[in-house]
Simulated scan of single mutants.
Amino acid sequence: MAILYILIPLSLILLAIAVRVLIWAVRNDQFDDLEGPAHQILFDDDEDRIPPEARQHTEQTSCQRDRNDPE
Results as ranks from 00 to 15, higher is better:
residue 37 P to D: 00
residue 31 F to M: 03
residue 13 I to L: 12
residue 57 H to Y: 09
residue 35 E to F: 09
residue 13 I to H: 04
residue 25 A to L: 12
residue 30 Q to I: 02
residue 2 A to Q: 12
residue 36 G to K: 10
residue 14 L to F: 05
residue 20 R to K: 12
residue 26 V to S: 06
residue 21 V to D: 07
residue 19 V to D: 02
residue 30 Q to S: 08
residue 59 E to C: 05
residue 71 E to A: 13
residue 34 L to K: 03
residue 71 E to H: 14
residue 62 S to W: 11
residue 32 D to R: 14
residue 9 P to F: 01
residue 2 A to L: 11
residue 50 I to Q: 02
residue 23 I to N: 06
residue 67 R to F: 04
residue 21 V to F: 03
residue 14 L to Y: 06
residue 69 D to R: 12
residue 53 E to L: 10
residue 29 D to W: 06
residue 56 Q to F: 06
residue 12 L to W: 09
residue 15 L to I: 08
residue 2 A to G: 07
residue 20 R to W: 11
residue 40 Q to D: 09
residue 63 C to M: 14
residue 18 A to K: 04
residue 2 A to R: 09
residue 59 E to N: 09
residue 37 P to N: 00
residue 25 A to R: 03
residue 4 L to S: 11
residue 35 E to C: 06
residue 45 D to L: 15
residue 30 Q to G: 11
residue 53 E to S: 05
residue 70 P to D: 05
residue 61 T to F: 02
residue 65 R to H: 12
residue 71 E to D: 15
residue 56 Q to A: 15
residue 5 Y to P: 01
residue 42 L to V: 07
residue 55 R to K: 15
residue 43 F to I: 06
residue 55 R to S: 04
residue 58 T to E: 12
residue 52 P to F: 00
residue 3 I to T: 07
residue 9 P to K: 02
residue 69 D to T: 08
residue 3 I to F: 11
residue 27 R to W: 05
residue 36 G to Y: 03
residue 24 W to Q: 06
residue 61 T to L: 14
residue 10 L to C: 04
residue 58 T to M: 14
residue 15 L to Q: 06
residue 27 R to V: 02
residue 13 I to K: 01
residue 33 D to W: 02
residue 34 L to E: 04
residue 44 D to M: 04
residue 59 E to Y: 11
residue 66 D to R: 13
residue 6 I to P: 00
residue 6 I to Q: 08
residue 65 R to V: 07
residue 60 Q to Y: 04
residue 19 V to T: 08
residue 63 C to W: 10
residue 66 D to A: 14
residue 39 H to V: 07
residue 4 L to E: 11
residue 56 Q to T: 13
residue 69 D to S: 12
residue 31 F to Q: 03
residue 50 I to F: 01
residue 57 H to K: 14
residue 1 M to C: 04
residue 50 I to A: 02
residue 46 D to Y: 10
residue 40 Q to E: 12
residue 70 P to F: 03
residue 3 I to M: 09
residue 11 S to L: 15
